[in-house]
Design a protein around this nucleic acid. Structure first.
Lengths: 98, 98
DNA sequence: AGGCTATGTAAGTAAGTTCTTACACAGCCT
DNA sequence: AGGCTGTGTAAGAACTTACTTACATAGCCT
């Protein structure tokens, strides 16, 4: 989970995830969405995402296609849910107090 | 959201959140849970958490009491949910294909 | 084969993070 | 007032991150 949460902390990587969310995208296609950044920079972000288990890669001839791998967020989701549950508990207590 | 996700990327800060999740804890009490780390280090983490909107502080005489503020995770939860929804969509498509 | 396209990797740099120790300050108690 | 307790802040060191440019490699096409 550590890796996933660290990976997701970067806004560029989150943007990449939003892009591959809707289907496979090639590395170049993704880099094209970040004109302010060099192509290798995007490539490095992709590496981080793959190693964190948040995206899958597959080779297609010349290119590499990246796709979202949502299971990678399972532990992160668990943490957030665990924190979030406090909301529900507090709400419940407030209701019972009435 | 940026701040919250960045804050949550650190394992010490997540541990602090788990601790304050069950109710208010004083700074010193929290620091006591991290014998490997200096007290100021914990204090600095608390500052980050407060600024990210993930915990609340309140003064109680000498001490400062910290408590979880789960609303701070709202945007982060939204992001994860948005990614997670891909799972459901894929599952649905798989079922329909049968 | 030779060249073009798509993409990753290496090396180096600038900036950011996370600690540490030393210090400052507020509140309590006698 | 003066000292103790609890806690934040300052300054700096060590490490990590997110880039950049230059280079390497693999597949496609003629």
């Amino acid at each position: 989970m550590d890796d996933a949460l660290r990976a997701v902390a970067d806004p560029t990587r989150r943007a990449i995830m939003e892009l591959v969310r809707d289907g496979e995208r090639s590395a170049g296609e993704l880099a094209g969405h970040f004109p302010a950044m060099s192509r290798p920079a995007v490539s490095q972000h992709l590496k981080v995402l793959v190693e964190a288990g948040l995206v899958d890669v597959r080779r297609d001839g010349n290119r590499r296609l990246y796709a979202l791998r949502p299971e990678g967020l399972a532990d992160a989701a668990g943490f957030i849910e665990r924190m979030w549950s406090v909301q529900l508990r507090r709400l419940k207590e407030a209701v019972e107090k009435e």
